[in-house]
Amino acid sequence: MAVLFEKTKGMTDVKTHYCPGCTHGIVHRLVAECLEEMGELDNAIDVSPVGCAVLALNYFNFDGIQAAHGRAPATATGIKRVHPDKMVLTYQGDGDLASIGMCEIVHAAARGEKITTIFINNGIYGMTGGQMAPTTLPGMKATTAPYGRDVSLQGYPIRVCEMLSTLDGSKYIERVAVDSPANVIKAKKAIRKALETQKAGLGFSLIEVLSTCPTNWGKTPVEAVKFVKEEMIPYYPLGVYKDSTKEEE
């Protein structure tokens, strides 16, 4: 019988703790597939964040370390400076990267650290139970914004790709979504491009992935995917925000 689909060797045979309809699993698989296709599984080192993806290193079938909340880019910097020939990636959520860890991600990008960041934006704190994130949409409800995010009190969401793309050290920045098979394929291409940017030693690369959190959004998996398409993508437009890989090569 012909094999139509085979699980990547970049993932372990462990059942994940992610909720039904959560897209972390898809993104994990895309990262692992890209590394496998590039022949880098033996060379890869993951820095897992604090948040839902804290256990990612158990699901990835390559080296990994758990960083302190928000500090994954700093920890990745330390690793990459010691092993410039390894593929080092951070996998961070929006609370980790855009709130407590904003300083570290900005400076890692500014220094042009040759690492790749996978940034999961689902507009909510997942692990701690649905609190407001820096990326929570205006009017969107959270356990610490029970009446919906009021921008006059709680400020505005942060568009990370737009911001980091202004820095000279960042070489490839793209925002993708995993709300449809077509977008998943695009997301994989983006991740591959970011990893290739690192492998070529060009500088910092980041892929923001608009993701779901059905549990904390109070939606079914199908409603959640619809929310990404109808609410998130309009606020966080998809596309390549920075690509200076041509000039660098």
């Binding site: 960083a67 500090r71 330390g78």
Partner: peptide, 8 residues
């Protein structure tokens, strides 16, 4: 945290 990474 860079030190954490480097010693790891």
């Amino acid at each position: 945290n860079m030190l954490y990474g480097a010693v790891a």
